[in-house]
């Protein structure tokens, strides 16, 4: 199927300005392609994402939300990984309460040079969401 006519899932990515944004930029620089319905909002730190923003994205029609987390590289400290994990758990619980499949929220640490990893994550998440969509 030609790339222009292929169906893609709509994925919202929360990326971080200092860590995962450079990796996503570098994916473009290296012409590493990923589905075009991957749309990014930059924030300072992945542990500062509010669950309500994620639920809002699902309500507005996003198929999936991906948190490109700082991981151990977070400039705000080592506790970021644990705190981001907690907010994901909290959001998963809220998603269940709202009858949203928790697997539609994914998180992975994307370091500032992890372009290939980001692209791989987007492709596999896209495939998963298409496979499990009701369309």
């Amino acid at each position: 199927m030609a790339e222009g006519t292929r169906k893609h899932a709509k994925i919202l990515v929360f990326s971080t300005e200092k860590i995962s944004d450079p990796a996503i930029d570098m994916a473009g620089l290296l012409k590493l392609h990923y589905p075009p319905k991957v749309l990014t909002i930059s924030i300072p730190c992945s542990s500062g994402i509010k669950p309500r923003w994620i639920l809002h994205a699902f309500r507005k029609g996003f198929d999936g939300v991906f948190i490109a987390a700082d991981g151990s590289d977070c400039p705000y400290g080592e506790s970021c990984t644990e705190k981001t994990g907690k907010l994901v758990n909290t959001t998963h619980d809220l998603m269940k309460e709202n009858n949203i499949e928790p697997a539609r929220l994914r998180m992975a640490a994307i370091c500032s040079v992890c372009s290939e990893s980001f692209v791989k994550q987007m492709k596999s998440f896209n495939e998963y969401l298409l496979l499990h969509s009701n369309n």
Partner: peptide, 27 residues
């Protein structure tokens, strides 16, 4: 960093330039 944002049970905290209004309108 915004680490305090998601833990507030009454959603009383916002981050400058990353408020609920800004992020949700972007979404």
């Amino acid at each position: 960093c915004g680490m305090c944002l998601p833990v507030c049970p009454t959603d009383a905290i916002d981050l400058t330039a990353y408020s609920n209004s800004e992020i949700e309108s972007m979404i």
